[in-house]
Amino acid sequence: MQQAQTAISGRLPDIDQRDLAWYVDKLLQFLVFIGGISAIILIIGIFTFVTIEGFGFLLEGFSFKEFFLSEWWEPTDEDEPTYGILALVAGTASVTGLAMIVAIPFSLGAAVYIGEFSTGKTREALKVMVELLAAIPSVVWGFIGLSIMNPLIIKLFDVPVGLNVLNAGIILGLMAAPIMTSIAEDALKAVPDRYREAAEALGATRWQVIYKTVLPAAKNGLLGAVLLGVGRGFGETMAVLMATGHAINIPGSVFDSVRALTATIAAELGETAVGSEHYQALFTIGIFLFLITFVINLTADLIVRGIRKS
């Protein structure tokens, strides 16, 4: 007994003496710090790069009024090229909006079922499937839009073109739903069981427990899931390029073809001369996309903080 006691005491470092463990701790703290700030450095680096590439256009050809308010994106017009992104913004916004209308009920419903109702093997199987769905490449979704949704929409709604806002919105919604489900389910899982038990002890039904205690407790995470979906919608390129019809147009209905901001960059960047006005204008769209994403994330952060405070 006495031996065990002194064995430990004898190995403790003096409180005024730094041992190997202390130095290892400091070293690892430093390495983790480097890892942490590298994310910030990368973001600043990317923003700087995009800004520099689009800078010439911002200084010379750029007209605030034309860029944001003109619906004419005609960079290759020989007499007078115009660079208006209004129609592209409308395209991206309409597709993303429809995608969220599709994805939010799907993903929240799936998350509540997986997290609150299913048990055992069903639950495990569902989680694996959702993760598999999330891993499907976007070009495959675009292909489904092109070859399955397109004829289906033409047949069902009797419209001439099936590549439109409806097609891309549904495709994008289905595409964003799995990852949103996964995040929302994590948020529900993080709610401690004692909340559920406390509510159940009051005689609340399963739905009342979920609606009154679980969802409010998880709302930050759920909001995060939705905003991640919005971000995905804005940033997605390949699937919307294939399913929207890629026609510059301010949509009047879901059956109109549109063109997205990202798809424009993807389709045109390879055909422009590096450093030309067109090339720089595409990078200016890049800056704009970057700023939108930044604002979405910042808003989400502020909302979440606001919720936390109250």
Binding site: L12, P13, Q17, R18, D19, A21, W22
Partner: peptide
Amino acid sequence: LFNDINIRAVRNVYALRSR
């Protein structure tokens, strides 16, 4: 003061906590 040593000034806070 812990054993007459000011705990704000100890060089190895982990060793302090282990005691």
